[in-house]
């Protein structure tokens, strides 16, 4: 299991290859990469703030639960903070399991929990001002299915 909370960019392809090479006996690897989007074409940067002491422990707890619940062979979470440009990779999740269903489900579980339970806050810096991204009700509701 590996968790990295970092400011610098990462190479999702290289990370995925290294993760896949490191798991033994898994029949399935699923990965997700989150990217800064610019729906209106006016985004200059996305600033991600986090709570350094809590980020690590909150994500580790979520990963531990996923490992146990889906009997994963391995799991990876990389999450960036700081100022990110549109198109930049924000974060990635990878899960490895004997079967694909567990790998898919565990990846979705990790994403749902990272969205509303990992202490990150996003601020969109636009051409005409900055605004904190509001949490969505559906993100909170998504947790109830687990």
């Amino acid at each position: 299991m590996r968790l990295s909370v970092q400011e610098q960019p990462f190479d999702a392809g290289a990370e995925l290859n290294a993760f896949t090479a490191g798991v033994s006996g898994a029949g399935a690897v699923v990965s997700f990469t989150g990217i800064v989007r610019d729906l209106s074409g006016t985004l200059r940067a996305m600033e991600i703030e986090h709570y350094p002491g809590m980020t690590q422990s909150a994500i580790s707890a979520i990963m531990d639960e996923a490992m146990t619940r889906w009997s994963l062979s391995d799991a990876l979470v990389i999450h960036r903070y700081g100022a990110l440009k549109p198109g930049a990779q924000i974060m990635m999740v990878a899960t490895a399991s004997a079967h694909r269903l567990a790998a898919f489900e565990a990846a979705e579980f990790l994403m749902d929990y990272l969205k509303s339970r990992a202490p990150f806050w996003k601020k969109e810096i636009g051409l005409d001002g900055a605004e904190w991204v509001a949490a969505k009700d559906e993100d909170e509701a998504a947790l109830t299915r687990w």
Binding site: H79, K115, R117, A118, W121
Partner: peptide, 12 residues
């Protein structure tokens, strides 16, 4: 020892 206040989180 430590209390933190913040808005609902927006990770991922």
């Amino acid at each position: 020892r430590e209390v933190a206040f913040f808005p609902p989180m927006t990770g991922g």
